[in-house]
Amino acid sequence: MIDVIEAARSAGVEWLSLYAFSTENWRRPDDEVAFLMELVRRAVRKHAPLLRARGIRCRFLGVTHPRIPPALAQDFADLTTLTGESRRMTLTVAFDHGGRRDIVAAARSLIRGGVPAEDVTEESFAAHLPFPDTPDVDLVIRTSGEQRISNFMLWQVAYAEWVFPPVLWPDFRAPHFLECLHTYQQRERRFGGVPPKQNGAP
């Protein structure tokens, strides 16, 4: 994981999101969930100083379920605090995340604020999503040969390019990432129109 983060940073990527755990993953067997939690916790603690040194702002999307161990939540909060000032790259870790839930939360927030229906625009709606400063996603890499969205940042991936490398996530390393980046650069992005625009780095 840290390998990929390093590769992205040196390739000039400014926004990187990782899907670590979905709201649906809670349905997995208890010991598997517990193992995953421990794995994430170890990774966070191990890499915290490096992430700080590299100027990577880390934040966690989701993280609301009461089943998240308090120690892990504390580590998440600590890492967010530790790297809060960094701006060279923003790493969003989606943990206990669900794209639909975020959209529902934004709708709730709008209704609570008493915003009249005709005042709701795509921009004003997006401002109520969690981490509203997140730009639209340019590229989604779905590893392990799976070809599903799996409820990931639904709003933000509207015009994303997708690549589906067959390699499994635990084996996914820097060269794989750069390969995906290269594939993306070859794509012609049209956003529904026909502008012959060349892709730059995301």
Partner: peptide, 9 residues
């Protein structure tokens, strides 16, 4: 931040 780092390491 110092406290956070201390707890993490």
């Amino acid at each position: 931040r110092a406290g956070a780092l201390l707890r993490l390491v």
